[in-house]
C-alpha cells in the first residue's frame, strides 16, 4: 500500500501518446466525401482486410490500422505512409470486408489526397515520367514469345502518342514537373 502513496506521477516517459486534440478530425469527413468511401465509418476493426492482404506482412501499418488512423484523424501519418502506394490494388480486402468498406478504393482516395499535397514517392514520379515520355510503362518488343504465340510483332492498335498527349494535359504532368 505504501507503493501507492509514493507514486508521484504517471510514468509519462514510458509512453508517448498520440494527442487526440492535435489530430485532424475533419480527415474522416474528407475521406467519406470522396467517391466510394461513404462506408468508411462502418469499419468495426475486425482486421479481415489485413488477413486478406497478400503483402501486409511487410507493412508497418496494416490495412485495418490505416482505416483506424483515417477514422481517428491521423491525416499526416496516413498521407505520408508508404503503404498506400505499396498497395497492389488486388481488391481482396474490399471483396472480403463484412461491412462493405471499400478499403482499396479508400486507399486510392488517400493517394489522390497525398498527390494533391505533393506527397508522392519518387519511384511513383519516376513511373509517371516514364509514361509521359514513352506513353507506356513497358515497351513491347517483337520477341520470340509473341512469335511463339503466333502474334504479330507489333501490338495492334497501340497508340502511345495519344496516351502521352492526354497525360501531358493531366495532373500526371504537373506531378512530374513538381508543379503541385
Amino acid at each position: 500500500m505504501t507503493e501507492m502513496e509514493e507514486q508521484s506521477g504517471p510514468p509519462t516517459t514510458l509512453i508517448d501518446p498520440i494527442d487526440m486534440s492535435k489530430l485532424d478530425t475533419k480527415f474522416r469527413e474528407q475521406i467519406k466525401s470522396m467517391p466510394n468511401s461513404e462506408e468508411l465509418s462502418a469499419c468495426f476493426a475486425c482486421s479481415t482486410c489485413t488477413a486478406a492482404c497478400p503483402i501486409a506482412n511487410i507493412w508497418q501499418y496494416k490495412p485495418h490500422q490505416l482505416i483506424r488512423m483515417i477514422i481517428l484523424g491521423m491525416k499526416e501519418e496516413v498521407l505520408s505512409s508508404s503503404e498506400i502506394w505499396l498497395c497492389l490494388t488486388c481488391y481482396q480486402c474490399q471483396e472480403r470486408c463484412p461491412q462493405k468498406v471499400r478499403v482499396t478504393d479508400i486507399f486510392f482516395d488517400c493517394k489522390n489526397l497525398a498527390a494533391e499535397e505533393g506527397k508522392v514517392p519518387s519511384n511513383i514520379i519516376g513511373l509517371g515520367k516514364e509514361l509521359l515520355e514513352k506513353g507506356q510503362l513497358y515497351t513491347v518488343t517483337a520477341d520470340w514469345e509473341r512469335e511463339d504465340l503466333g502474334l504479330e510483332p507489333a501490338v495492334p492498335g497501340l497508340s502511345v502518342e495519344a496516351v502521352k498527349t492526354i497525360l501531358k494535359e493531366t495532373r500526371t504532368n504537373k506531378l512530374v514537373e513538381g508543379g503541385e
Binding site: P10, M20, A45, S47, Q65
Partner: peptide, 15 residues
C-alpha cells in the same frame, strides 16, 4: 486520459 489502442499498438491521449 491515455488509452492503449491495441489495434494500432499506440497510446492515444484524450481530454
Amino acid at each position: 486520459i491515455v488509452v492503449y489502442d491495441s489495434l494500432l499498438n499506440k497510446y492515444l491521449k484524450f481530454s
